[in-house]
Design a protein around this nucleic acid. Structure first.
Lengths: 249, 249
DNA sequence: CAGTGGTCTAGACCACCTC
DNA sequence: AGGTGGTCTAGACCACTGA
């Protein structure tokens, strides 16, 4: 008697629960830009009505997306699309901390921005053909006027067509914040590989350390919706007074 | 009419939802050893009856504890206390991967196990008084017969009274698995700080690299129930053919 | 088959925010 | 006061496991 009207039957093979299908629908709306970063999405009851499911099912879908850092819930106000333009999320992709005390304010200093074509490595990592146009950005992050991180960033030129140093100098927002507001490319996940290396001439000069000093090399592949890789980054961290912080659980 | 019998009222200040109180109760049972690692805990309906709440409330408590890696749900079978004695959880606290291919099987070779008294650093980190007895273990992890990680492990002697190399040689289980089965100390969380350093004489010898080579230093503080620190570890990783892997989301 | 966790619903009420 | 998310309940049914 309690059975609601018939719905697409799951039935064993390739079974996907309703709330996951709802999640995919909301994800599609995010990807299509129906709701942009920072926007409020419709209330749970609105979405429940739109999708023809109960509020609890929408709730479970949103719960997972909030756990994935795609949405942010704020009690009494609504549910919002996560954004990188938010001081809190600055350290989500920068696991840097000072050995003692709190990390002082940072300053990003772009060094150069060049155009090139993907070699075999970049092409493989970003899932593109060898020779595809790319943009290369080099910059240094300063903390308390000391250089700490030297970054080399590789981007597909197609997604970031008019990228240049000008935008960086004019903006003190984070790189991912710029990507999301100017190019509509939202980074949602990243894989990092960490190694210890000896500083070569370029990174030693950028970080003001002796050539051959040990540096922490952080290689990152960042992904946007649909697990599409859209950034490759090599960051050289000077770890004399700072460290990379990670919590295991 | 739908109101269940009266319950301890939350009422604004220091409000904690019911499912969180249930979580604390289950946590207490874990801590007290009522259910040991690997054991099945009572079914959701049993717990609901025991605590006088609905099954959905118990469910939400268990959901959070499963997300915290304290419990493991297995559909159709039950809910189990998480254990380190499990090949799957071996890499939960060892974020090591091979640069190419899969990581071959590992072999842990203990070098020495000594007794000492806590200096200021260890005392501060482990929350004990200076001079408290500690145990120091040094060992090397080999992959495909190549040394990759040189570990120095500092433990409070009180919790690991008869710790010695013998137990290690006789056991090919992981260190945390041994801690949990032999000493009843379960590691549930850890903080790691990563830096690049130059190999000193000791670590260079242990890892068969040249003195001064860049090594990845991973300093870890591991915590048991109640966020009590019970291990400090300095791991020197040789990252020529391996790397520390981290996923950001 | 019975027992477990997993999904879905419907409805009530609470906590929080804004107007 | 009215909206939002957050909690809690009760009950039905589904999917998985193992005897």
């Amino acid at each position: 008697m309690n059975r609601p009207p018939a719905r697409t039957l799951p039935l064993s093979p390739t079974f996907s629960p309703l709330y996951r299908q709802i999640k995919e629908l909301i994800l599609a709306s995010l990807e299509s830009g129906e709701w942009g970063p920072g926007d409020a999405i419709p209330s749970e009851s609105d979405l429940a009505q739109r999708f023809g499911v109960s509020q609890g099912t929408v709730r479970k879908a949103i719960d997972e997306m909030a756990a994935d850092n795609l949405l942010v819930r704020r009690q009494g106000k609504g549910t919002f699309v996560a954004t990188h333009n938010d001081p809190h999320s600055f350290f989500r992709f920068l696991r840097l901390a000072a050995n003692e005390g709190v990390l002082p304010t940072s300053r990003s200093v772009p060094l150069e921005c060049t155009r090139a074509r993907a070699g075999t490595d970049v092409a493989r990592i970003l899932g593109m053909a060898v020779g595809t146009p790319i943009v290369i950005l080099r910059r240094v992050l300063y903390f308390a006027d000391k250089p700490v991180v030297f970054d080399e960033v590789y981007l597909p030129a197609e997604l970031f067509p008019d990228f240049s140093l000008d935008f960086l100098n004019a903006n003190d927002e984070s790189l991912y914040s710029l990507f999301e507001s100017r190019y509509g490319v939202r980074m949602i996940r990243a894989d990092e590989r960490l190694r210890a290396v000896s500083a070569d001439r370029v990174s030693a000069a950028a970080l003001d350390v002796a050539e051959g000093s040990p540096l922490l090399l952080v290689e990152r592949v960042a992904f946007t919706y649909g697990d599409k890789p859209v950034e490759w980054r090599r960051g050289f961290y000077s770890t004399a007074n700072h460290h990379y912080h990670n919590e295991l659980s």
